[in-house]
């Protein structure tokens, strides 16, 4: 029970970020002529904000089914990097680790790699995942049910940007070094210049290459420093 309470407290900022976006998603789904009951199911199956927003015009245009699979692979390609640094060793049971991996998002990755999550036990980790997942599903349901009755929520989507800024700053406070941030920003600038349409994936590849280089450099200089 304590683990649940503590997880609920730590995931509250994620909830504040998720609710407006999932509510807006539910509204849009109903507005293109889909039954309200589909919205929470849709969110439960995918649990990925960007991808679900991309799905809406595709559904409205009756895109071929295979396109949905391909779009998922392209839009969510960044997820392949989230195995790095995620504390999967905390989840000793196969079932819990599968649940955590299935519900891994940008925000869950950020939370679980933060200073705050260092002392998380298996229960607390799982609760944090499930609570965030629930925010997303419930938000979609609420949005779909109130689709015609809610006032415009223009600007509320900024809550997710604010959440990411906060999580990024928390990384800064715990890591106390500037080079990963410089690497991230410079990779982004290069990626934006070279290929703005696929900027996110390209920036991630560039930055991981940069990080690998810095590792070999460090290793090399460590070797040179030791007398043979």
């Amino acid at each position: 029970m304590n683990a649940l309470k503590a997880a609920a407290k730590d995931t509250l900022p994620i909830g504040i970020g998720y609710l407006p976006l999932s509510i807006a998603f539910g509204m849009m789904l109903v507005q293109i002529g889909i039954h309200w009951s589909i919205a929470p199911l849709f969110s439960a199956l995918i649990f990925s904000g960007t991808l679900q927003y991309v799905a809406i015009p595709m559904l409205a245009a009756s895109a071929p089914l295979v396109d949905f699979f391909i779009t998922a692979l392209i839009v969510n390609s960044r997820l392949i990097f989230y195995g790095l640094g995620y504390p999967i060793h905390k989840l000793s049971r196969k079932r819990t680790s599968c649940l955590a991996i299935f519900t891994l998002t940008d925000e869950m990755y950020s939370l679980m790699t933060s200073e705050k999550a260092k002392d998380y036990c298996e229960h607390k980790t799982l609760w944090a995942h499930m609570i965030s997942y629930a925010y997303w599903i419930i938000g979609s349901l609420v949005g779909a049910l109130l689709a015609t009755r809610l006032p415009s929520m223009k600007g509320l989507e900024f809550s997710l940007t604010a959440l990411i800024i906060v999580l990024c700053m928390e990384q800064g406070y715990s890591k106390k070094r500037s080079f990963p941030f410089i690497l991230g920003v410079s990779s982004s600038v290069v990626a934006l210049t070279l290929w703005p349409d696929q900027f996110l994936f390209l920036a991630l590849i560039l930055s991981m290459a940069g990080l690998s280089l810095s590792y070999w450099n460090k290793k090399k200089s460590a070797l040179e420093a030791t007398p043979s």
């Binding site: 940007t161 690497l183 991630l204 690998s212």
Partner: peptide, 23 residues
């Protein structure tokens, strides 16, 4: 090598995500 990437990649990835959100 993997531990090194694991240690620093969250900070790198988050700074990229900030730009992705504001873009």
């Amino acid at each position: 090598f993997i531990a090194y990437l694991g240690k620093w990649s969250p900070a790198v990835i988050l700074s990229i995500l900030v730009i992705y959100c504001i873009k």
